Computed example of a mutant assay.
Amino acid sequence: MPEISGKRVAILATHGFEQSELEVPLKKLREAGAKVDVVSLEPGEIKGWEKKDWGRPVPVDRTLDAVSPQDYDALVLPGGQINPDLLRIEDQALDFIKGFWTERKVIGAICHAPWLLVELGILKGRRVTSYKSIRTDVVNAGGKWEDSEVVTDQGLVTSRNPGDLDAFCGKLVEEIREGRHERRAA
């Protein structure tokens, strides 16, 4: 029996997501038994970024205006430079993310995606990693940045780059299996 059978996970992304940072968690979480929806701002498809050019399109399962954090057990935020930068100026996306945090649900953020958590003030006092170019942003937001492949802190799972996706997905599955997390003050 899959490890997280019956659990629901949202992957929030828009154009410019790092290709592997959406596709690998999508595949691994489904293999672990989760029902996973790609959620975006608009219906249709979103196009990824792969290395130095546009990647493959991925179908959008649900639009942001048709979902709420109550529909899911966990949230995955792929990185890439473009994707989180576009999402962090969208109030609806920020409200969606904040709802997961408020409800003590698991949030996974890869590479540049912690920019979204910086925007929401979620990182203060939390152990976290990210792509090295946003380290200063994370630290300035009060995060305790670590140069580690994956860092977990009370249901918050962060990964520094796409090369760490197997470890990231493993920790994400573990956190989802555990369920809601108490978020003691940092």
Rank of each mutant, 00 (worst) to 15 (best):
D95W: 07
L41P: 00
F96M: 01
W49F: 15
K124F: 14
I110L: 13
D37S: 09
W115H: 13
P59C: 03
L12N: 06
R183V: 11
L86H: 07
H15R: 02
D71Y: 11
D65Q: 06
P84M: 15
Y72A: 02
L116P: 03
K47V: 14
V106E: 02
W49I: 11
K171M: 12
I134A: 06
Y131L: 13
A141Y: 03
I176K: 03
Q154G: 00
T129L: 05
G44N: 04
K7Q: 04
S159F: 07
L117I: 04
G121P: 00
S159V: 01
L26W: 03
R184M: 01
V39I: 11
E175A: 14
A185L: 14
V9L: 02
R135M: 13
N161R: 11
L94G: 01
E146P: 02
L26E: 08
N161E: 13
P78T: 06
L77T: 06
G179H: 05
K105W: 10
F100R: 00
Q70L: 09
H181S: 10
A167N: 13
K98P: 00
K98H: 10
L156V: 11
K144N: 13
E90C: 02
R126F: 13
L12K: 04
R135V: 04
P2H: 04
A10T: 07
L165E: 03
E18H: 11
V24P: 00
L172T: 03
D147R: 13
P59A: 15
R88W: 00
L172Y: 04
I107K: 05
L26Q: 06
E42W: 05
A141K: 12
P84W: 13
L86R: 15
D153S: 08
L29K: 01
A13K: 01
R160H: 07
D95H: 10
R8D: 03
K98D: 12
G80Q: 04
G155F: 06
E119Q: 15
S159E: 00
L172M: 14
G44R: 08
G55V: 12
V38A: 06
L123P: 04
H15C: 01
A93G: 12
A66P: 02
L22E: 10
K7D: 03
S40F: 06
G143F: 08
G99E: 07
R127W: 12
L22K: 07
